[in-house]
Amino acid sequence: MNRSGPVKLIGLIAGIALSNIAVLSPGLLGLQIVGGSTLETASGVTLLFTSLLVVLYGSYTLLFKTPATPSVRNLETRDDYIAGLSRYRNVKALQKDVLLALEQLERIDKKKSTLMNILGERFEPTELSFRKFQTVIVEVEKLLYLNVRGILNKLSVFDASEFNLFTSRQRPKPFSDTLVQRKNELYNEYFAHVTGYLGANEEILLKLDQLLLEISLLDNTDYRAVDEMPCMKELNALIGQTKLYQN
């Protein structure tokens, strides 16, 4: 059931009711179903019948129809990723991981903003050093989102009901211990992938903290000094490895 459905349905019914009142009320348009012309009667009956169909279809769509799940391939904006993760917030087995992933998206946004503000104070936007830092920050942010995409790929195929069935203490007796063990091993492997993505994102966030510290301690604004910064080397290596893997 769509949680926001009842509220939307009430709004739909209210809108239809107000429209019918406006059309049928003698003080307004005054369309008469009884006692009016043949055209008015037909129009009034059609209006009421159409209103009933709209309410019935709206009730089904808003209350019972399962919303289509957007493809992970179609995720583009930060809000898309947040919406994608939020669909799993109430799945008990995934809740902690999902909340951490959402928190990581919030933290990367804050760190990026802080870094860009510091760069704006230290360099002119036209300077090569500024552009080098900016490029690395943007590329590293893409890596974090790439890991979140990986998490969403895993979540999209996770069957919470089946997981609960095999992990419940009251699981059906026909399941052999061997089958249950194999299923649990599969789920553990599944969760390990998700944990791996989350761990990789924590590494990225840590490196951005290190980068912020190194920028604050940077005495020389020469672009050659930027290239020799330990954290910049690490981030460039990480970006290069990821691009190589994708190719």
Rank of each mutant, 00 (worst) to 15 (best):
L212E: 11
E202G: 07
Y223P: 10
F158E: 03
N153Q: 12
L198A: 03
I137S: 02
E106N: 15
R182A: 14
D222T: 02
L217N: 02
F163A: 05
E203L: 15
L205Y: 09
E127G: 09
E106A: 14
G150K: 00
F133C: 03
L186K: 14
R131C: 05
K111A: 07
L213W: 06
N117Y: 15
D209Q: 10
L152S: 06
F130G: 03
E203S: 13
Q104D: 01
E162G: 08
E103A: 06
K207C: 05
Q104G: 03
P174L: 06
S168W: 05
Y145P: 07
K173A: 09
E162S: 10
E189M: 15
V140I: 15
P174N: 03
P125Y: 00
G196H: 00
L205Q: 06
R131E: 01
N164H: 09
L152H: 06
E121V: 13
N184Y: 08
E139K: 10
I204H: 07
L105K: 11
F158K: 04
N220F: 04
Q181E: 13
T221S: 05
N220P: 02
N117R: 15
E103W: 07
I151Y: 02
L218D: 05
S176H: 03
L208I: 01
F166Y: 15
Y187M: 00
I215L: 14
N153K: 11
A160D: 04
Y145H: 03
L105T: 11
I151T: 00
E185T: 12
P174V: 00
F133E: 06
K207F: 13
N201Y: 06
D109P: 09
D209A: 06
E189R: 14
G120M: 05
P172L: 15
L99I: 08
N201T: 02
I137W: 10
L144E: 09
Y187Q: 05
R149V: 03
S156M: 04
T195Y: 08
A200E: 09
F133Q: 04
R169D: 11
L218T: 06
A160H: 09
R122Y: 05
D219M: 13
E202K: 05
V140D: 02
K111H: 01
Y145N: 08
Y187I: 09
V157L: 07
L205T: 01
F175L: 08
N147M: 11
L115E: 02
N188T: 14
K154P: 05
L115K: 03
R107K: 15
K111C: 03
V148I: 15
L155D: 05
K132I: 12
A200V: 08
L128Y: 12
F166Q: 02
N184F: 10
Q95H: 13
I137A: 05
L99F: 05
F158T: 11
V180A: 14
K183Y: 15
